[in-house]
Amino acid sequence: MMPTDAMSWLMWVIVARLLALLWASALLLACTVLPGRPRRARDENEAIGELSLRLARGEITANEFEQQRQLVLTAFRP
């Protein structure tokens, strides 16, 4: 005769591990397939704000500011 308590305990452990493996693989698949978070306008505004500060400090010229601003705008637009 088999001890049923030990077998049922072992089955619960196996089922719990399989369930954890299922959730982990579903999460990994979702992270791989789904795109990342969309870029927010705040990121764009922060980048342009940083460019404005660099222009105000004299680190870049007005032409460089405009070129880099255009790059930022194209990078954040789909």
Rank of each mutant, 00 (worst) to 15 (best):
M1C: 10
M1R: 14
M1F: 10
M2E: 08
M2I: 08
P3E: 10
P3M: 04
P3V: 06
T4I: 08
T4H: 09
T4K: 12
D5I: 02
A6L: 10
A6E: 09
A6F: 05
S8K: 12
S8H: 03
W9P: 00
M11V: 10
M11S: 12
W12I: 03
V13W: 07
V13A: 11
I14P: 01
I14G: 13
V15G: 02
V15D: 00
A16Q: 04
A16D: 02
A16G: 07
R17N: 08
R17C: 09
R17E: 03
L18G: 14
L19F: 15
L21M: 14
L21N: 00
W23H: 06
A24T: 13
S25Y: 04
A26E: 10
A26N: 03
L27M: 11
L28T: 11
L28K: 06
L28A: 15
L28E: 01
L29K: 12
L29N: 07
A30F: 05
A30W: 14
A30R: 15
C31H: 10
C31W: 14
C31K: 10
C31P: 00
T32P: 00
T32V: 04
T32D: 02
T32W: 15
V33P: 02
V33N: 01
V33R: 15
L34Y: 12
L34A: 09
L34R: 15
P35L: 04
P35I: 02
P35F: 07
P35G: 07
P35R: 12
G36R: 15
G36D: 08
R37M: 02
P38G: 13
P38A: 15
P38R: 15
P38W: 11
R39G: 05
R39A: 12
R40F: 01
R40V: 00
A41G: 13
A41F: 06
A41E: 15
R42N: 04
R42C: 00
D43V: 03
D43Q: 12
E44Q: 13
N45D: 03
N45Y: 04
N45I: 01
E46D: 08
A47F: 05
A47E: 06
I48R: 14
G49H: 12
G49N: 13
E50W: 05
L51P: 03
L51Q: 08
S52F: 05
S52C: 03
L53T: 05
L53N: 09
L53Q: 09
A56L: 06
A56I: 02
A56V: 01
R57I: 01
R57S: 08
G58H: 12
G58R: 13
E59Q: 08
E59A: 09
E59V: 03
I60A: 13
I60M: 14
I60N: 13
T61S: 15
T61C: 08
A62P: 00
A62H: 01
N63S: 09
N63Q: 11
N63T: 03
N63F: 07
N63D: 08
E66K: 15
Q67A: 09
Q68I: 05
Q68G: 00
Q70W: 11
L71A: 14
L71H: 12
V72S: 12
V72H: 01
L73V: 02
L73T: 00
L73F: 01
L73N: 02
T74C: 04
T74K: 15
T74A: 14
F76Y: 15
P78G: 14
P78E: 11
